[in-house]
């Protein structure tokens, strides 16, 4: 008996830290499978479309009775509705989720949380907002600041120095003025307007592999280190550099471009496929990615700079903020 008691004490001391686990086995509280969203698909317009669907369902539930309280972007918000037009005057602040059938106009320096217009949306200079959603065209003045995202079905024009939050998407043309900063941008195409020339030449190390000016390559081009492609080259396949990559002006690459480090793309370069860069990326003036039929993407793992007149048919994604060169 004494021996047993010694052994029991030993077993009890041993088992003490295992008790929570034992309880979890006996009465499971966290035993469900990880939630894999079976319906998940990659969609640049996800924020906009899911919000439209949510607002539609709220409007159906409330039969248009305004205002009402509902959950929006993880927060309980008051929805306010106007039949046609909402105007937030200069310097005014709105705390509701604004809904309009035709138009929403924000005066200079207005501040708003969320707004949805079934028609157009016009923002003056220095407007601050959390999310903006519209079914028609959207125009942002200078130095506007978006906290989360904007989505439109029509063209979006963004004024100088604005910040577009984590996502700016449109089914049509997205025009970025100089100095605009963004996380992700989708447009057909995304176009940069005026600004200074990118100017700076890309740097590669002395042992970089080099493709001479005007060269023509029929297959894929893979470099184990830095790669410098000269001006006016024609590459029929894809390009991959394990180091830094410089593509000379006027070159055309039919396939994809992958850079494991920084990449500099010269002026008037055409890329038929995707541009995927794990480091800093600078796109020179007049660069064109994808086309109206084949929508492609630009991915940048660090800082992205877009020169003048860049046209990207598809998605531009940066991990930190990207910017159109001021």
């Amino acid at each position: 008996m004494l021996l047993l008691s010694v052994v029991v004490v030993f077993a009890a001391v041993f088992a003490l830290p295992l008790l929570p686990g034992f309880l979890e086995i006996v009465r499971p509280r966290d035993c469900k499978a990880l939630n894999v969203d079976q319906g998940y698909v990659r969609d640049p317009h996800f924020f906009g479309e899911s919000s439209r669907a949510k607002i539609r369902s709220y409007l159906q539930e409330t039969h248009g009775q305004m205002p009402f309280l509902a959950r929006f972007l993880s927060r309980r918000s008051e929805f306010a509705f106007a039949d046609a037009r909402i105007e937030i005057k200069d310097g005014q602040t709105a705390r509701n989720v604004l809904l309009a059938e035709e138009c929403i106009v924000f005066g200079d320096g207005a501040r708003v949380l969320d707004a949805y217009s079934a028609g157009t949306m016009l923002l003056g200079n220095g407007v601050a907002a959390r999310t903006l959603l519209c079914d028609g065209p959207m125009s942002l003045g200078e130095d506007c600041r978006i906290d989360r995202w904007i989505d439109a079905r029509g063209d979006i024009t963004v004024g100088h120095g604005s910040v577009l939050g984590s996502s700016a998407t449109t089914a049509q043309r997205l025009e970025l003025s100089a100095g605009v900063r963004f996380g992700r941008a989708f447009g057909l195409p995304v176009v940069t307007l005026s600004g200074a020339s990118t100017g700076l030449p890309g740097q590669t190390r002395a042992n970089a592999e080099v493709v001479a000016d005007g060269a023509q390559v029929d297959g894929d081009l893979i470099a184990r280190r830095d790669l410098r492609i000269g001006d006016g080259c024609r590459i029929r396949g894809s390009v991959k550099a394990h180091g830094a990559l410089v593509i000379g002006s006027g070159s055309a690459i039919a396939g994809n471009v992958i850079a494991r480090a920084d990449a500099w793309v010269g002026d008037s370069v055409t890329v038929g496929g995707h541009l995927f860069c794990e480091g800093d990326l600078r796109l020179g003036d007049g660069t064109r990615i994808g086309n109206a039929v084949r929508h492609k993407s630009v991915y940048c793992g660090k800082h992205l700079e877009l020169g003048n007149g860049v046209r990207i048919f598809g998605w531009v994604v940066t991990e930190p903020l990207g910017r159109a060169i001021a």
Partner: peptide
């Protein structure tokens, strides 16, 4: 973390 290619959107 090294990025994967999931952020590339393609209609082709």
């Amino acid at each position: 973390q090294r990025p994967y290619f999931q952020d590339l959107y393609d209609n082709d």
